[in-house]
Amino acid sequence: SQSNDYGCVCVSVSDDDNSRNWFKCARLDAINWIFSTREILGFQFRTAYLSLTYFDRFISRRFIDIGKEWAIQLLCIACLSLAAKMEEQVAPSLSHYKAQGYNFESSVIQRMELMVLTTLEWKMSCITPFAYLHHFFSKIQDECDCDEFLVSKS
């Protein structure tokens, strides 16, 4: 396992194939949930991307037991809510995050947020490609007036 500070792509720390497969599926589900929730709550794409880097950095340092879907779900909510607090003008209250099949109390999400913050050592402002994209798009804006669309496509 790699414990890179800002590592984005990480593999499950277990050697067991079974667990690796389970984790791959769980991560895909997590990405799906993050992006659909992004749409529902009207977040920017960069917020979703940032939350995914939190997710991956967390997973690269800690290990979630096989089959613990609820833990993955809870982690997704905590990561997205933290990313929203960093990136969005207005972050919604915790009750707006709806997990698939689970209903987490706000106090539980808060506990998970703290766990993510500690694990990531409170280093929450990662540079995402979006910082550069906006710069590049502003340079070529004369030729292109659909900035947001391009950013989302990329």
């Binding site: 933290l82 607090k85 703290l114 913050l117 409170w122 280093k123």
Partner: peptide, 19 residues
């Protein structure tokens, strides 16, 4: 405050302080 998650302003300030 309880149960509203960790305040965003606090997260931003600590992130900054660490830098």
């Amino acid at each position: 405050p309880d149960n509203e998650g960790v305040p965003g302003s606090l997260i931003k300030e600590i992130t900054l302080l660490q830098a």
